[in-house]
Structures are given as structure tokens and as C-alpha cells.
Simulated assay, not measured.
Amino acid sequence: MSGLASGLMFSAPWALLLLPLPLLVWWLAPPHRERIAAIRVPFFQRISERLGLIRGSGSVVRKRRYWQWIIGTLVWLLLVTALARPELEGDAVTLQKPARDLILAVDISGSMDQQDFLSPAGERTQRLAGVKSVLAQFLGGREGERVALIVFGSKAFVQAPLTTDLDTVQELLQLTEVGMAGPHTALGDAIGLAIRQFETSDIQQRLLILLSDGSDTASRMSPINAAAIAAQQRVKILTVGVGDPHGESDNRLDIDTMTAIATRTGGEFFFANDQQALARVYQQIDALAPKKVDSETFRPRQSLAYFPLALALTLAMLSVALHMLERADWRREAAS
């Protein structure tokens, strides 16, 4: 690239080397000369004077007028300029594209309705409400990443597919209610559904954050087997437990399984029993797996080649029109 002025660039500046080409042709390739048969005319001098012709040494080269030289030169300059592809360069634009896909799998089984989750003020709130509050802050720091939301209970469902529209993910998260996916907990199915979501992506770095307060009671595939498949698919799983490890059998947080899931995929298990602890967990997750975004900077360019082309065409048409007018004048004079 080369530029003549601020913002004006030539994409093919080598084309400017063609500017002296007409001079080289005029110098190296003079008019063609050949001998041809002719008839002697006794009054040739009078015909030549009448037609305004100048005799040469056996050949006739039409003389061009000054305006023809000027228009021809301008047309050639404009054509070469267009061939050099002038472009107007704009200000630099930086685009961010995700370098990692992140899926949040949130447990919304019946046990998430329990009012034992402590708020920063020390008040007991619903587990899911507390999780939503902290997740909203976490999502606010994922700008530029592709995020998906999966909710699961007895079944697992995709609430939001992989997208960079985090506002929509936030809205869908807030609309989620306990029991929408059934009363039980299907950890393995949630992992399997996340794997299928990752299969549609060509991004290599894949992270699943699995949040639950219970033990697996409804999966068709065991969570450990699902984690093994996730490891084969290069999916890293971070598990977060927010339940009671000493609760009843179905509602008891299965720390061993949650830890095994994370370990099998190279991730970690975190435990949080209140909003402050959960917020610290997500801070640790940010440190363990910071936001991954690739930046690409480019300058938009607008082609200006049509300007010299249009002007060259206009001049060429003007030249043809003037030439036709001269020939018409010459014919009228010859007729008279």
C-alpha cells in the first residue's frame, strides 16, 4: 500500500508505472511505412491545397489538434489512476470475536426453592434467587464471549443457545423459575446437552460451569460417563455446589460426584453456601479461566476508482463529439 494524502491510498500503486507507456510507444513504434501503387494526377497540388493536406515522403500521418492531445493525455492519466485502484481509508475499527465458548448449566429442580441461601445482608433467600443475582454479575463481565444457558431438573433444556447477546441471556435467566424442568436433578443429561451445544461450534476452547444443589436422580447417562465424553470433546467443566452436603438423600449435595465430574475434565469443584461465597467462587473462576476474546483491527476502505473512470469516459465521448463536428464542417466545405 502507498498513500498520496491522509486517508487516500492506492491498492495497486504499481499500475502508475504505466504512465510513460504512450511515450515509449510513440518513440519505439513510429507510424508504419509501406510502398503502394499510385496514380499520377496532374492537378494533385491543387487537390492537396483544397483539402488542406500536407505532402509527406510517401506516407500520410494525420495531424492531431491540441485539444486532441490534451484530452488523450488526460484520458490516459485517468485510466491509469483507476487501474491503480484509489481507495479512501477510514478510521481504524476494532472487532472482538470470541475465542472461547462458555455454557452455564443451572439446576432449577425443586430443592432450589429452599429459603436457606444467605444474602449479603444476612437474610435467608431462595437458593435460585441468590444464584440469579450472582450469575447476573458474572455474566456482566463476559462481554465479547459467546455464552449459552442450560437449565435442568428432571430434564435438561437449552434456555439460550451460544450467543454474544448477553442481555438476552440475562433476561432468560431472570425468567427461569424453580420446577420448570421438573422436580428431580439430571446432572448427566445437562452435561450431555452441553456437549451437543459445543458440537455446533468450531471454537477450540470450551468451558462448562455446572451449578447444582443436589445429587443426580433422573439422568439417563451417569454424570461420570458424561464427564468422560466431555473430556474427549475437550470440554472443561467447573462444578459449583450451593446445597447442603448433610441434607436428605435426594436433596443432599453430592460433593463426591461434583468433584469427580470436574476432575475428569481438568476442572475444579467449588462450594458456596451464601451469596458472598458464591461471588467469591465466580471471582476464582474468573482467575482460573479468564475471559477469552480475540481482537482484530482493520481500516475500512471505500473504492474511488469509479471517479476517474467516469471522467475518462466523459472526456472520450467529448472527443468523439468534437471530431464528428469537425468532419461535418469539412464535408460542408468540400460540398461548397
Results as ranks from 00 to 15, higher is better:
132 K>H: 06
184 H>F: 08
335 A>L: 15
114 Q>D: 14
116 D>F: 04
198 F>G: 01
230 A>K: 03
315 L>P: 05
146 R>F: 12
253 L>Q: 11
279 A>C: 01
252 R>I: 06
268 E>P: 01
296 E>D: 04
183 P>E: 03
254 D>L: 03
132 K>A: 00
216 D>C: 08
311 L>S: 10
227 A>G: 07
245 P>M: 06
58 G>V: 02
57 S>H: 15
262 A>M: 12
291 K>L: 07
148 A>E: 09
12 A>C: 01
316 A>E: 05
174 Q>F: 08
237 I>G: 02
192 G>T: 08
189 D>F: 02
192 G>P: 06
74 L>S: 10
174 Q>L: 05
44 F>M: 13
292 K>S: 10
140 G>W: 14
168 T>H: 08
113 D>E: 12
199 E>I: 04
51 L>G: 08
96 Q>F: 13
229 I>D: 03
219 S>L: 12
186 A>D: 09
294 D>A: 07
30 P>C: 07
209 I>V: 11
172 L>A: 02
35 R>E: 12
335 A>Y: 13
148 A>L: 13
157 F>K: 04
297 T>C: 00
318 L>C: 09
304 L>V: 12
251 N>D: 11
192 G>V: 04
164 T>L: 07
51 L>Q: 13
125 T>M: 10
223 P>Q: 03
9 M>F: 12
90 G>R: 05
229 I>Y: 03
268 E>A: 12
187 L>G: 01
232 Q>S: 10
118 L>N: 04
216 D>E: 11
171 E>Q: 14
174 Q>Y: 07
238 L>A: 00
224 I>F: 02
132 K>I: 09
230 A>R: 01
299 R>C: 02
326 E>H: 09
112 M>R: 07
291 K>R: 13
209 I>P: 02
87 E>P: 00
314 T>F: 15
79 L>A: 05
166 L>M: 08
272 A>Q: 01
324 M>L: 15
321 A>T: 15
280 R>I: 05
309 L>D: 07
254 D>C: 03
219 S>F: 09
212 S>L: 09
323 H>P: 00
253 L>K: 05
117 F>H: 12
121 A>Y: 07
110 G>K: 12
2 S>D: 12
16 L>D: 05
122 G>I: 05
222 S>D: 11
222 S>V: 03
108 I>L: 09
102 L>R: 02
194 A>R: 10
230 A>Q: 02
171 E>G: 04
240 V>I: 14
296 E>V: 12
281 V>H: 00
